[in-house]
Design a protein around this nucleic acid. Sequence first.
DNA 1: TAAATACCTACTAGTTAGATAGGATTTACG
DNA 2: CGTAAATCCTATCTAACTAGTAGGTATTTA
Lengths: 154, 154
Amino acid sequence: MDISARTDYAVRAMLTLARAADEERGPVSVDALATAQELPRRFLEAVVADLRSAGLVESTRGARGGYTLSRPAAEVSVGEVFRAVSGPLAEVRGLRPQDTAYTGVAEHLPALWVAVRAALRDVLDATTLADVLSGRLPEHVRPLLDAPDAWTNR
Amino acid sequence: MDISARTDYAVRAMLTLARAADEERGPVSVDALATAQELPRRFLEAVVADLRSAGLVESTRGARGGYTLSRPAAEVSVGEVFRAVSGPLAEVRGLRPQDTAYTGVAEHLPALWVAVRAALRDVLDATTLADVLSGRLPEHVRPLLDAPDAWTNR
DNA sequence: TAAATACCTACTAGTTAGATAGGATTTACG
DNA sequence: CGTAAATCCTATCTAACTAGTAGGTATTTA
């Protein structure tokens, strides 16, 4: 269960765009995005292209062009960003959780995989870019951080 | 966020061993494990080796040998199986969630990654092999399956 | 017209996933 | 004691993926 560099970069770029929108600074170039978070420029270019085809950002070409959020930061969930750049939140051997088919002892395994996906959705689809910017995660997400060993390895 | 074939196979093999322990059938060979769940035998051999070095199963060599659970199925969580065969539950660009370091707009991102890991733990560390065998997931996991669209794509 | 920018296509190196092969070692059992 | 059934060890293979780079075209502003 890895969060790829691609996804990490995408979220950070979106946060940068959210802040820019907040300050009404107009379109932000890939170059500016890369510099702001120290991301590899050429690679980021491909990532932002995915965000664009997913409709999460809009581009303006030419000099003084760049990218802007399509929607307010409070209406864009991190889960959407995930899906835009790296597909479904959870897959099992390339299948959607509910499409896995087992027999015998593994009969009930799909339920577990569906629960895993649901748990991810509960966090990622509920948390918006604005939440991350402010550091105030949603009501029902916060308790997850209060578990005694939430911040340590297990 | 993919659950690999490796992990899927590991869980299914563990479930098979759990059932065998239940019926006091003694050690189960890799060949029997592979046949029971239609898994590639040679590949499974490597997977079971990981389960062994993690201490989750014990092996007996020679004819009539095979593998047995080290602990009762009700005391082995699916999370342990995950970690045994594919490392930490959640990583960000190869780093543990709490070890990620950001500046500026991404300042609070580690909290989100930690929450994601915590959500996974809540499901995977709480669910035991016995739970999956019986189809009765833990109290606090079941509600995840009751969400209206839990079983459909989003 | 020049600079800045998105956008498109292609490429590369390294790693991982999934799987297979051959054989060495150990052990129950007839 | 011998043989078959196992684990166990090491090596290999292929395809795909990940992260990243390169070069150039199209578009727009100043």
